[in-house]
Computed example of a mutant assay.
Amino acid sequence: MTVSFPHTGTLPETTPRLHFRLLRDSDAEFILALLNEPGWLKYIGDKNVHTRKEALAYIHTGPLAMFKQQGFCLSLVECARDGVPLGLCGLLKRDSLEWPDIGFAFAERYHGRGIAFEAASATLKHAKEALGLTNVSAITAVNNTASMGMLFKLGFTLQGRIELPGVDEPSNLFLKIL
């Protein structure tokens, strides 16, 4: 089944603590650090981003290319008060999944503050209200209990395991009806 998505090109609204924006070249150092944090490497995997140049390539061929193609992407989530980058949150469209899936990753120093839940909630609201989506998927490593717990808190249901291209081990597949 082919599902088409609107190409509105919008991002979630600012929340009381968070601001969403497209990544830009000046975010390369933050992306380089985030993509090499132990949690990212363990649960998401090594994206082979080990230099500033590779971080720039990731920004342009990943999130910015997806935004141009789909009208949504992983956005930089920053502190609304001072613009400090906190992490990434948004929607991705993978050929192997019927629906867009939500992705989130925050610098480990910001874990445990409710930031990921706030960002993911805003992203789901945006998916429904601005993009007109009726379903959103999510995938996690089978041992990523923190992300699974947050997905359950957000109202996702576990659908089972899925084999994803380029991923050595099965992943958990979740679905949320919006």
Rank of each mutant, 00 (worst) to 15 (best):
Thr15Tyr: 06
Pro16Ile: 02
Pro16Thr: 04
Leu18Thr: 06
His19Phe: 06
Ser26Leu: 00
Ile31Leu: 13
Ile31Gly: 00
Ile31Met: 14
Leu34Met: 09
Asn36Leu: 07
Pro38Trp: 11
Trp40Leu: 07
Trp40Arg: 02
Val49Thr: 05
Val49Asn: 08
His50Ser: 10
His50Met: 03
Arg52Leu: 09
Ala55Asn: 07
Leu56Val: 15
Ile59Asn: 06
Thr61Lys: 12
Leu64Gln: 14
Leu64Thr: 02
Phe67Leu: 01
Lys68Phe: 00
Lys68His: 10
Phe72Asp: 00
Cys73Gln: 09
Leu76Val: 13
Leu76Lys: 01
Leu76Trp: 04
Val77His: 03
Glu78Arg: 11
Ala80Tyr: 14
Asp82Leu: 03
Leu86Pro: 00
Leu92Gly: 00
Arg94Leu: 14
Arg94Lys: 08
Arg94His: 13
Glu98Phe: 00
Ile102Met: 09
Phe104Trp: 13
Ala105Thr: 11
Ala105Phe: 00
Phe106Ala: 03
Ala107Gln: 07
Glu108Tyr: 05
Glu108Gln: 14
His111Val: 11
Gly112His: 10
Ile115Leu: 15
Ile115Ser: 02
Phe117Gln: 10
Ala119Asp: 08
Ala122His: 11
Ala122Trp: 09
Leu124Asp: 07
His126Gly: 00
Glu129Met: 08
Ala130Asn: 11
Gly132Glu: 04
Asn135Thr: 10
Ser137Asn: 15
Asn143Lys: 15
Asn143Trp: 01
Lys153Arg: 15
Gly155Ile: 03
Gln159Pro: 01
Gly160His: 11
Ile162Pro: 04
Pro165Asp: 12
Glu169Arg: 10
Glu169Pro: 01
Pro170Gly: 12
Ile177Ala: 12
Leu178Pro: 04
